[in-house]
């Protein structure tokens, strides 16, 4: 396809966003599962789920910023 312009960085970012997306889904699937089975475990599970979400989200945002910076 000649005559197409654009930057491959954004394609790379699209690919790199797949990982954090799946990770976030799995974290909350496990969290919901755990709370549904044992509602009193919520206060124990909540910080763990949020920190896992923060780590996964950090990678996604890092990819977003690097796609524009590099």
């Amino acid at each position: 396809m000649e005559g197409m312009t654009g930057t491959l960085n954004l394609v790379g970012y699209g690919l790199s966003a797949i990982g954090p997306a799946i990770a976030t889904g799995m974290i909350f699937a496990a969290y919901i599962n755990g709370v549904a089975r044992q509602p009193e475990a919520r206060s124990v599970l909540q910080p763990i789920a949020f920190l896992g979400f923060a780590l996964a989200e950090a990678l996604a945002l890092f990819g977003l910023v690097l796609a524009f910076v590099l």
């Binding site: 005559g3 197409m4 312009t5 654009g6």
Partner: peptide, 8 residues
């Protein structure tokens, strides 16, 4: 991101 066709 814009993919511009050359033959407009």
């Amino acid at each position: 991101m814009r993919l511009i066709h050359a033959a407009t």
